[in-house]
Amino acid sequence: MEPNQQCEFAGALTPNNRQTQFIAKHVRIILTERGYSHSTVERGVREAIRTYHHEGNFPRGKVFDVCLAAALHLVKPIKIKTKPAAKSPKKSVPHFNKAA
């Protein structure tokens, strides 16, 4: 391999054609608008591009939607189920008899 040549797999996860450039650009815009940090946005972009390269069966016209969904699934915060708070015992209120 000559020094100027790249391995065919070297750019697999980088934007190297129009489709991946489109996906990377728009996923980056959407994630940035939603307030994610730069490193999280880049992780989402890599996941969207990886999905584009590895997914074989996209529904007609849904390529970008599937890639965006994969990116959002990767970067969404993990919600941990918590146990419901223990009920505090009811405070008893003294009852006063009003005897005449």
Rank of each mutant, 00 (worst) to 15 (best):
I49T: 08
I78P: 09
N17M: 07
H54R: 10
R46C: 08
I30Y: 00
I29W: 14
D65I: 02
N57D: 07
K83F: 10
I49M: 13
E8K: 14
A24W: 05
R43Y: 11
K62V: 01
C7D: 15
K91L: 09
C7Q: 06
N57R: 07
L68Q: 00
V45A: 06
T51R: 14
S39H: 09
V93E: 01
E2T: 10
P89C: 07
I29L: 09
A99Y: 08
G56I: 02
I80G: 00
H95Q: 12
A10S: 15
S88D: 13
A100G: 05
K83P: 07
F9D: 13
A86E: 11
C67H: 08
C67G: 05
T82I: 14
K98E: 10
L31D: 01
H26N: 15
T32M: 06
P77M: 11
E55L: 14
Q19P: 02
I23K: 01
H95T: 13
E42S: 12
V41T: 14
A12R: 15
T82Y: 08
H53T: 05
R18Y: 02
G56W: 04
E55I: 12
K25L: 08
A86N: 11
A69V: 00
A86K: 15
N16T: 13
S37H: 06
N97C: 11
P94M: 06
K25T: 10
D65L: 04
L72D: 00
H54E: 03
D65G: 04
K91D: 02
P77R: 07
S88I: 14
P84H: 05
E2D: 14
Q6W: 09
Q19E: 14
H38C: 07
I23N: 02
R43E: 15
K87M: 02
K25Y: 13
N17A: 05
I29K: 09
Q5E: 12
S88K: 14
S39I: 11
F58R: 01
K91S: 05
V75Y: 03
T40K: 12
L13Q: 06
R60K: 04
A10W: 06
G11N: 14
P77I: 08
A69D: 02
C67E: 05
G44C: 09
R50M: 06
V45H: 04
T20G: 03
A12Q: 12
C7S: 12
K79C: 13
K81L: 11
E2G: 12
N16W: 13
N17Q: 08
R28L: 05
F9K: 15
N4T: 06
H54N: 03
A69S: 02
A71C: 04
L68E: 00
P89W: 01
L31A: 03
H53S: 03
E33T: 01
A71V: 09
R28M: 06
K83W: 10
E33W: 06
V45G: 00
K76V: 15
A99Q: 13
G44F: 00
T14Y: 07
P15Y: 01
Y36W: 03
C67Q: 08
V27L: 05
T51D: 00
A24N: 01
I29T: 05
F96N: 13
S88N: 10
Q21A: 12
A85D: 11
G61D: 03
H73P: 00
G35V: 02
T14M: 11
V45M: 08
L72H: 00
N57Q: 07
P59Y: 09
Q6C: 09
N17W: 03
K91C: 02
T51H: 12
R60Q: 08
F58Y: 10
M1I: 03
